[in-house]
Simulated assay, not measured.
Amino acid sequence: VLYIPLITIYQRMFQLGQWPSSWKHSAACPIFKKKDPAEYINYRLISLIDVPSKMLETQIALDMT
Rank of each mutant, 00 (worst) to 15 (best):
W23H: 05
R44M: 05
Y40I: 12
L45I: 07
P30Y: 07
S53V: 00
L56Y: 03
S21Q: 14
S47Y: 03
D63G: 15
D63E: 14
D63P: 00
V51S: 08
S53D: 00
P52K: 05
F14I: 01
S53G: 04
Q59W: 06
Y43K: 01
Y3M: 08
S47V: 03
L56G: 02
S26P: 05
I41A: 11
A27P: 02
I49G: 03
T65Y: 06
I46Y: 08
C29M: 15
A28W: 06
L48M: 15
L56P: 02
V1N: 08
N42D: 04
W19T: 12
M13H: 03
K35C: 08
I9G: 00
S21N: 15
I9D: 00
T58K: 09
P37K: 15
N42A: 04
K54S: 07
P37S: 11
T65V: 13
L48Y: 06
M64R: 07
Q11H: 09
Q15G: 00
T65Q: 10
C29S: 12
H25S: 15
M64V: 11
Y3T: 08
T58R: 11
S21M: 10
K34W: 06
H25L: 11
R12H: 12
K24W: 13
P30T: 06
A61F: 10
W23G: 02
D50C: 07
F32M: 11
C29R: 12
L62R: 02
I31A: 11
Y43M: 00
W23Y: 10
S26W: 04
C29N: 08
D63Q: 12
I41K: 15
M64K: 05
N42T: 02
I4P: 03
I46T: 14
S47N: 14
D50N: 14
S47A: 14
V51P: 00
E57A: 10
K24L: 14
S26N: 12
W19L: 13
Y40D: 09
Y10I: 08
P20W: 01
D36C: 10
Y3P: 00
E57F: 05
K35I: 09
R12W: 10
K33T: 04
I49Q: 09
R44W: 01
S53C: 06
L45E: 01
P20Q: 06
S47P: 06
P37W: 09
Y10K: 01
S21I: 10
Y43I: 02
M64D: 07
R44K: 07
V1I: 09
P30W: 07
N42Q: 01
K33A: 02
A28R: 04
I9H: 01
P20R: 05
N42G: 05
V1D: 06
I7A: 13
D63C: 12
K24H: 11
